[in-house]
């Protein structure tokens, strides 16, 4: 194995939302080509961490650093973070009535390429990516997430991932709301996106998706802290035994 360089690194990140601290001094070092997973029970702060890293206005980063490809991102607005190569697939994507999926994707890709960049290839690219993810072509002209089922929203998130092809993808509960066929297609999309130059951080409280997208590292989040890390076997143990043992072993520490 060759030496892998760090792609996304954050240190001692703390987050407050509505004045309440929900993430407490979390650090991670993600290298190119790696897949990391953060697992943890509901309410442990996984989405807060993900949203804060993406620049969500409701989540305040009160402490810590984060750098993508060596560049500090915390001073950037969300759109700059995106253009710098960061991506977050949302746990709960919102509807934008009146804005079609195709128009949205074109505008996003144009923003990434620069406003005078050629977009002649867009139609073809977009059509191919839709087909790859088995998304019905009629979705192109539907309004973004407007009346979409939970599973459809998640597919559209992965469509955005594959069109924008970011350096670093954070996927927040991308498996929730998916039936088994959809889970396979979405996993296929994630695996097709992966290469030696990018990285994935999967955020989930089930290990279901991890059967299809194999993580190199698994981290466990409790009460806003990363309390332990391990390999893929840690995910299986959580699947087997639930989060109780983590709570027993690390709960105290988390409160301390």
């Amino acid at each position: 194995m060759s030496d892998k360089s760090t792609l996304f690194k954050f240190d001692n990140i703390s987050v407050t939302v509505e004045g309440k601290q929900v993430v407490n001094s979390v650090s991670l070092n993600i290298k190119r080509g790696e897949v990391h997973a953060i697992m943890g029970p509901n309410g442990s702060g996984k989405s807060s961490l993900s949203n804060a890293l993406m620049g969500h206005p409701a989540y305040n980063i009160t402490n810590g650093q984060a750098a993508l490809d060596g560049v500090d991102i915390l001073g950037m607005a969300a759109d700059e973070r995106s253009r710098a190569g960061l991506f977050l697939a949302f746990q709960y994507p919102l509807a934008i009535p009146g804005v079609t999926v195709a128009n949205f994707m074109r505008t996003a890709l144009q923003a990434h390429r620069g406003k005078d960049a050629d977009m002649a290839d867009f139609r073809k690219l977009f059509k191919k990516k839709m087909a790859d993810l088995s998304i019905d072509p009629t979705f192109a002209t539907r309004y973004l997430n407007d009346g979409f089922s939970g599973g459809e929203k998640k597919r559209i998130e992965i469509l955005q991932l594959s069109v924008l092809d970011p350096k670093m993808a954070i996927l927040d509960e991308t498996d929730s709301g998916l039936d088994i066929d959809a889970l396979k297609e979405v996993s296929k999309g994630i695996n097709e996106y992966r290469n030696n130059n990018n990285a994935v951080l999967m955020v989930t409280h089930y290990q279901r998706l991890l059967n299809y997208v194999k993580p190199d590292f698994v981290h466990v989040m409790m009460d806003g802290r990363l309390v332990t890390s391990g390999g893929p076997e840690l995910a299986l143990k959580l699947e087997d035994q639930g989060y109780e043992w983590v709570e027993k072993e690390f709960g105290q520490k988390a409160e301390a």
Partner: peptide, 30 residues
């Protein structure tokens, strides 16, 4: 406008002002 909608578009690289334009143009479509 719901700031979460603006954020969601911004998180895809779209400038804030463009996000606002898109959301308003969408809002009037119906």
């Amino acid at each position: 406008i719901d700031p979460m909608q603006i954020f969601q578009l911004q998180s895809r690289g779209i400038h804030e002002a463009d996000a606002v334009r898109m959301i308003v143009s969408g809002y009037v479509q119906s």
